[in-house]
Design a protein around this nucleic acid. Structure first.
Lengths: 238, 238
DNA sequence: CGAAGGCTTGAGGCTATTCAACCAGCGTGG
DNA sequence: CCACGCTGGTTGAATAGCCTCAAGCCTTCG
C-alpha cells in the first residue's frame, strides 16, 4: 500500500509549491502555524490509490510530486475519470459533504503527498481567515474546472475535445514553470478517453488527425504543440 | 430587470427552507446574527438573469421561490446548462475563484431570492464556524453533483440519461416535501437536452421511449413516474 | 523467449444528429 | 371572431460520428 515517512519534513514555508496550495497573504506567525498543519507525507506507488470512494474523510492531500487521476467506477464497471491532478493540486475536496470520500484517487506515477488532517484544517481555518478563504477559492475553482469539462462533453467533437484537453494540460504545466510547447502525458489513452467521454480508439484516431493537420507531434506519450493558434481555434477557445 | 423589496422581511429563523441553506446547529444568538445576513430579497422575472458570467461577485443567492438554470454560452453560441436550481438551493458559488461569476443564472419561472452579500458572509463565517463549515459542505456537494453529471455524460445513452435526470429531480423535490411520483418540469426540452448533452429531438424521442415502456406518463411538462424500480434500473442506479 | 499491456488501424454497425415537416397552444392584431 | 405568427414539442428520413470488434505492432518485463 503506502508508507508514511517523516524523514523529510519540508515545511510549507520552504516549499516551492506553497503558492499553489497555500494562501499568499500569510505573515510569519501564521506561516508557522501552517507548518504544523501538514502531519507528514505519504508515498503512493504508481497504480495505487491514495483513497477511494467510501473511505472516511480524514484528510486533504496536497501533491508534492507525481500525478493522480480522480475517478469513479459505476456498478456496471464503467470507469469515469473526472480529472488529472499534478504537483500543487489538492485532493479530497469531495469529502466535506458526507464525511466520506466520493471518488477514487489513483497515482499515475510514483507520488508523494502532504497529509493535512481535516480537524487541524478546520481549527486552523478558524484562526486564519485567509486560509478559510483560500480553501473556498480552491473549491470554487474545482467547480469551475468541472464545468469546463461539462462544456467539453456537452458540445465538442472528439478532435476538439482532445485539443482542449491538451491545451488545458499545457496551461497548468506552464503555471508550474514547464514548457507550454512540450508535454509528457502521464496517463494512458484509456484514461484520457474516459475523461473526455470517448473510447481509447477514438482518442488514438483523434491524435492521428491532429498530427495529420500539423497541429501537434506525437511520440508515444510525448506531445509537442506545433501550432498553438490552430489548436486553440480547434478547441473553440481562441 | 429585477426589483429589490424589503417589505416582506421573512427572517431566516422563521423560514421553512432554513434547513437547506443554513446550518442546523445554530443557537439563538447565532441565529440572530444570521438573520441580519440576508440583505433583502430580489425578484427575478421568468427568462431574466439573476447574474451572468463576468459580473462582479458581490453576493450569494438563496432561492426562496421559483427555479433557475445555470449555464454558459460558448463563443460559438452553444449553450451548456450545468444544472437546475430550485427553492432552498444556493446560487453563485462559482464566484469565489476570481471575484466574478463564471456562469449565468436564468429564471425558469418568476422567482424570489435572498441576497447574501459576500462581505457579510465572510465576516459572519469567521464568527460562526458552523456557518463556514456549512458553506464548505455545500460547495463540496456542488462538486459531487457535477461529477454525477459527468458520469452521466460520459457513460450513458439518451434514455438512461433522461431516466437519471428525472429521478434526480424527483429526489430533490421529495426532500422539499413534494410527491416523488409526480413532477412538473419547469424547463424546456431544449434546456434538458443541453444539460444532458443531447439535442431536443433526442430528448423528445427518449421521453417517447420511456412512455412506450410504461415507465412514465407524460403530458406536456407534467411527468408521472409509473415504474420507479424499472426507471432506476435504466438509470443504472438501482 | 513468451506473455502482457499499451497503442494503432481497419471494417461495420448503431446511436444520436441534422434537416425537415408538422401539430398544438397562445398571444396579437386586424 | 378568426387569421397570423411564434414558441415549444413531436415525428420522420438520411447522415455523420463514434463505438464495437478484431487484428496486429511495439515495448516492457518476468
Amino acid at each position: 500500500m503506502s508508507v508514511r515517512d517523516t524523514q523529510h519534513p519540508i515545511a510549507c514555508s520552504a516549499c516551492n509549491l506553497r503558492q499553489l496550495c497555500m494562501p499568499a497573504e500569510l505573515d510569519n506567525e501564521q506561516m508557522a502555524l501552517v507548518d504544523h498543519l501538514v502531519q507528514g507525507k505519504r508515498r503512493v506507488a504508481r497504480g495505487q490509490s491514495l483513497f477511494h470512494s467510501g473511505m472516511p474523510f480524514e484528510a486533504l492531500f496536497a501533491i508534492r510530486t507525481g500525478a493522480f487521476k480522480t475517478c469513479m467506477r459505476s456498478a456496471q464497471g464503467h470507469e469515469q475519470v473526472f480529472g488529472f491532478q499534478i504537483a500543487g493540486d489538492l485532493l479530497g475536496l469531495d469529502g466535506f459533504v458526507s464525511g466520506q470520500y466520493c471518488s477514487d484517487a489513483i497515482a499515475l506515477e510514483d507520488a508523494q503527498v502532504c497529509v493535512m488532517p481535516v480537524q487541524q484544517l478546520q481549527d486552523l481555518s478558524e484562526q486564519i481567515p485567509a486560509l478559510a478563504r483560500h480553501l473556498q477559492r480552491i473549491m470554487s475553482a474545482e467547480i469551475v474546472q468541472e464545468r469546463s469539462l461539462l462544456l467539453l462533453l456537452g458540445g465538442m467533437r472528439a478532435e476538439e475535445r482532445l485539443a482542449a484537453f491538451l491545451l488545458h494540460l499545457t496551461e497548468r504545466m506552464a503555471v508550474r514553470g514547464f514548457s507550454s510547447q512540450e508535454l509528457v502525458l502521464c496517463m494512458s489513452r484509456q484514461d484520457i478517453g474516459s475523461c473526455l467521454g470517448l473510447q481509447l480508439e477514438t482518442v488514438s484516431r483523434a491524435f492521428g488527425k491532429l498530427v495529420d493537420q500539423g497541429l501537434i507531434a506525437v511520440d508515444k506519450r510525448h506531445v509537442r504543440i506545433c501550432n498553438a493558434v490552430a489548436l486553440k481555434a480547434k478547441a473553440q477557445l481562441a
